[in-house]
Design a binder for these strands. Structure first.
Lengths: 161, 161
DNA sequence: CTTGATATGTTATCCTGTAACTCACTACAA
DNA sequence: TTGTAGTGAGTTACAGGATAACATATCAAG
């Protein structure tokens, strides 16, 4: 598993390919990637980290693209529904998806020190939860898995103290 | 797995045993189960469902046990730190732990229809996440696993439509 | 008696999220 | 052309969630 872990990578490429993937997906589903929606995705791709809805809204506001909370929430909801961004429940925040093409229920690794977030495909964990739920007759529609701890860099610097 | 699933069970017993377990745990750890903390736990045990901090606060207020948010949050934080209540990230809410004696990182099954929540011990899912994290050098401290869907009863009545 | 630890009280503020209503735009049919 | 249905966006107003910062109280140890 080395997809989108904590290693450095080319930012600009993320942004470009993220937008391209969004266009493709929306075209395929006949969903509208409107200016607001597109810009919200772009903001998250540029930020390359989890951002609160109000932080996103500040950007929109500065650009005259909408100034009230519902504008941001609707765009974020649309993007989340189409798997282009993810909501991090633990942080009440949103982050651009790093692998929009793959149908996935990702696991997030959240560093409590530097707030970096890695999105890892962990189909096995999800499957285990589904199986356990099935045993008690629960019908799972969505699984949230979020791990909090220390990323490699922060873990090291903490140990060095 | 039949611990605390969606079957009916004796409420009063939950409350009694929950408080008893809390007393034992606090005594053992020399932690103080003060009136406010005790009452907050009792409120959650009586409610027997996830409750927002402000809903808990309303109860405290009505009983003259504190009227400002920090009072509720401090009590909830204390109880959560001692494994007596759990925070449901998805709902920004709290629920009394159903098996306080067992050291656990539970999985929650949340019914989107009736809001019932089942706490299931699912050590395997947590272990899978930890293993996956280890592969990218991430040091996990806490894992949140929350599944949303339909409980047996709601799933059936939806299918019957 | 005083010092430190722990718990509580209070104010003020900030962040997160949504209901409800309005308007603009497009497509499509009468 | 006119009507109407659907979708997206704009706005107001508010509900709900969370915490910083400072003040107070209590109690046990030195």
């Amino acid at each position: 598993m080395d997809i989108k872990s904590f290693e450095a990578h080319d930012h600009k490429h993320c942004i470009k390919s993220g937008l391209k993937a969004a266009e493709d997906i929306c075209a395929e589903r006949k969903a509208q990637l409107t200016p607001v929606r597109r810009r919200v995705l772009e903001i998250l791709l540029e930020g390359h980290r989890a951002m609160g809805a109000y932080e996103v809204l500040d950007h929109l506001r500065a650009e005259g693209l909408g100034s009230q909370p519902p504008v941001a929430y609707r765009a974020l909801d649309f993007l989340a529904a189409n798997g282009l961004v993810h909501r991090i429940e633990r942080l009440n925040a949103f982050i651009a998806c790093s692998t929009p093409d793959v149908d996935h229920a990702p696991t997030f690794l959240i560093c409590r020190e530097c707030s970096t977030i890695a999105e890892t495909p962990a189909p096995r964990a999800g499957r285990v939860v589904r199986n356990a739920a099935q045993e008690v007759g629960f019908h799972v529609e969505k699984v949230v898995i979020e791990a909090e701890g220390l990323c490699p860099a922060c873990h090291e610097s903490e140990a060095a103290e």
